[in-house]
Design a protein around this nucleic acid. Structure first.
Length: 704
DNA sequence: TCAATCCGTATC
DNA sequence: ATACGGATTGAC
């Protein structure tokens, strides 16, 4: 048996009684001192990662392995131990001949199961993710390893598919390359500059890293599947993460046609604990080599990983809401790096963070030549760019531009469905210039301005400085106004303007996956757009331009481009798209020219100028004022000079109470130092029992 | 002189 | 978090 998680998974999985049942109600003789169990014949020490929440205990602890536990206490196994007087669970990280611990070792209380659920690769990944996010290994392992389902674990192993190697550590038996079912062997990759090269590199066992600016249209799942097939042909496994169940269904179908049945699994939370654990175990046991899934799938323990894919990496669904709030893209990047695997990250509109990976030289941009892009992209026209429409909210909400109606009619007459993207309710309004609608930003830190209360002067919502006499940097106007939240009424009006047309809706609570290729108006909120059968929608109306761009969020423009591209990508080549927005705004131009990657590069440069991630590394500390101040002070003590502190500013905490936020900022090159300092600060506080929680988020998604 | 209590520190 | 140890305090 191998002794540490740095080796491969153990093939030995003997069945052993783990906990002896207690005799019922037998009067127990008073605490007879038990003779010590004989120790395991070799490597009688287990190094265990404990599931304890305290930051200063985030390191392995050694326990004594008895002879009876020798075969079951394998690296990766779940165990129970006594720790500080309590029973806690943990994972065996390694078996060793001796401990560095000077005192006596406590016995390993029980091996919950000999199933080595934690692979060496995932253990190392989880450690790296915890370190980057200033969090604990235990927190990350809770995200990476699903809860055990004992009955599922005991199920007889189903007959393995012929291509699945029984030992993932046997490179002599690579999976037979799947016969490509698609008529076009490269899928759509041939249309990308370097696309076929990517497939060849994957098939040859190399590990290219690419940021993918996907062409509009329905081809992307087939392209993901083709990349997976190429990687599988090299004898390596694949992990694919997508934002939601609808995208997962598309990738799932594409994998079936590219690989055949039974060569992959889909992992999603909706499966329920039993089925989810069943499929996850098939992955862990090396019975399948390809995994597609939602957020948590980036941690899937695929044996001998060769490729990790993140589709639509700008979607917030990839951001984990539990501490330490890792983002799927960041996990994938770290994983590819640690495992020496290839990476494919992107979408119709790759994120600024993804494009920054290209700028740093870590990945290269994978895009189609402009001529192909022009041929595939819909024709985008802008309505509402005139100053009249810009100044008059009524013109935006209560009246549809003639152009939009004309294009909708034309599309319907041509026999196709027409997509209408409308804003979701509940965007926090921000302040923009009343004349030109440029967002009002702090002159010091570029944070969004807000009005603290009543007639008080404008102040920055990030750094708290008063904005004094704000003037718009674009047009010089001093007047500001709240951004108008879009109205669903527009869509209703559309229904009235087009009598007799079938109107379908897709939004919160009731999301459609697809609609038929017949005339209909399909009203959807961003992210809930159904795919249209056949070639796609005849046309699309994007009615939420103003609302999306007006959000007081660092990511507002990027997010707008991403959502517009996602909707416009569902339109057939040459179909028409109308967007209600200001044509002069760069985000709108990016859609018109279909250049989301160029826009992301522009945003990246702007963030560099403003000093925001991904150009720098930031950490947000949220909590009660005194606790936040304490953590900030402790962290700054450990950091050499050069750490900016922004704030504190008032901040509404997750539990609804009022607290404060401080932002710490360092150059990217010192990000690891910042995280280490924050971990140390958390450790000092947890050791002191100064237990008031401070939420620490590295490169926070929400900045206001 | 002994126990009850308070801190500080380690938790294998 | 517990849990334990050593110092401290207070009452016989």
């Amino acid at each position: 048996m191998q002794d540490t998680l740095l080796d491969g998974p153990s093939p030995a999985r003997p069945r052993v009684t783990v906990r002896s049942p207690r005799p019922p109600a037998a009067p127990r003789p008073p605490a007879a001192p038990r003779a010590p169990e004989p120790a395991a014949p070799t490597r009688p020490v287990a190094s265990v990662a404990l599931d304890v929440p305290l930051a200063h205990l985030d390191r392995p602890f050694d326990y004594r392995v008895s002879a009876a536990q020798h075969e079951t206490a394998v690296p990766g196994a779940r165990v129970r131990v006594r720790f500080a007087g309590r029973q806690v669970t943990g994972f065996v990280l390694a078996r060793r001949e001796a401990s560095e611990h000077l005192g006596a070792l406590a016995p390993l209380h029980a091996v919950v199961s000999p199933e080595p659920v934690l692979s060496a690769e995932v253990a190392a990944l989880a450690r790296a993710v915890a370190d980057r996010g200033a969090g604990t290994l235990a927190d990350v392992l809770r995200l990476a390893v699903p809860p055990r389902h004992a009955r599922v674990e005991a199920e007889p192993v189903p007959p393995t598919s012929p291509a699945a190697p029984t030992s993932p550590a046997a490179p002599a038996a690579p999976a037979a390359p799947a016969a490509p079912a698609a008529p076009d062997p490269g899928g759509g990759w041939a249309t990308y500059d370097g696309g076929l090269g990517l497939l060849q590199a994957l098939a040859a066992g190399r590990s290219p890293r690419a940021v993918w600016a996907a062409l509009p249209g329905p081809g992307w799942p087939a392209e993901v599947a083709a990349a997976a097939a190429a990687c599988l042909a090299s004898g390596r496994g694949v992990v694919i993460a997508v934002p939601d169940g609808r995208d997962l269904a598309r990738v799932d179908a594409a994998l079936v046609s590219a690989l055949g049945e039974g060569r992959h699994v889909a992992l999603a939370a909706e499966l329920g604990p039993a089925e989810r654990y069943r499929r996850w175990l098939r992955v862990r046991r090396g019975q399948v080599r390809v995994v597609a899934g939602t957020r948590a799938a980036v941690f899937a323990p695929v044996a001998d990983l060769g490729l990790v894919v993140v589709w639509d990496d700008g979607d917030d669904a990839h951001a984990e809401p539990r501490a330490p709030y890792p983002h799927g893209r960041d996990v994938a990047v770290q994983r590819a790096h640690l495992a020496g695997a290839a990476a494919l990250v992107g979408g119709f509109a790759p994120s600024v963070e993804a494009v920054a990976l290209v700028e740093s030289g870590w990945a290269r941009l994978l895009a189609a030549p402009r001529t192909v892009v022009r041929a595939r992209a819909p024709r985008v026209e802008v309505a509402g760019g005139d100053a009249e429409l810009a100044r008059d909210p009524a013109a935006r909400t209560a009246r549809l531009p003639r152009l939009a109606l004309d294009i909708a009619r034309e599309g319907l007459a041509g026999g196709g469905p027409v997509l209408v993207q409308v804003p979701r309710r509940g965007y926090q309004p921000g302040l923009v210039c009343a004349r030109c609608r440029t967002p009002a930003r702090c002159t010091h830190c570029a944070g969004p301005l807000g009005r603290p209360a009543g007639d008080e002067p404008l102040a920055c919502r990030w750094c708290g400085r008063s904005a004094g006499e704000h003037v718009c940097p674009q047009c010089g106007s001093a007047a500001v106004r709240a951004t108008v939240v879009g109205e669903r009424r527009t869509a209703e009006e559309l229904g009235r303007a087009l009598p007799g047309v079938l109107v379908r809706t897709s939004g919160r609570g009731d999301v459609l996956a697809r609609v038929a290729a017949e005339p209909a108006v399909v009203v959807a909120t961003p992210g809930a757009e159904p795919v249209a059968d056949g070639a796609g929608y005849a046309a699309a109306l994007l009615l939420d331009g103003w609302a999306l761009l007006g959000r007081p969020d660092l990511h507002a423009a990027e997010e707008a481009v991403r959502r517009w591209c996602a909707a416009a990508a569902l339109v057939r080549p040459g179909g028409r798209v109308v967007i209600l927005a200001d044509a002069a705004v760069p985000a709108v131009q990016a859609l018109v020219r279909w250049d989301p990657a160029g826009f992301a590069a522009r945003e990246s440069a702007e963030r560099r100028d403003l000093g925001f991630p991904p150009a720098v590394r930031m950490a947000a500390l949220d909590g009660p004022a005194d606790a936040v101040a304490e953590v900030a002070a402790l962290a700054r003590e450990q950091l050499p000079a050069g750490c900016d502190l922004l704030g504190p500013v008032p901040w509404r905490l997750r539990d609804g109470t009022e607290g404060e936020r401080v932002l710490l900022r360092v150059p990217r090159s010192r990000g690891a130092e910042l995280a280490r300092a924050l971990s140390a600060a958390a450790g000092i506080r947890s050791a002191r029992k100064a237990g008031v929680a401070v939420r620490v988020e590295v490169d926070p998604r929400e900045l206001a």
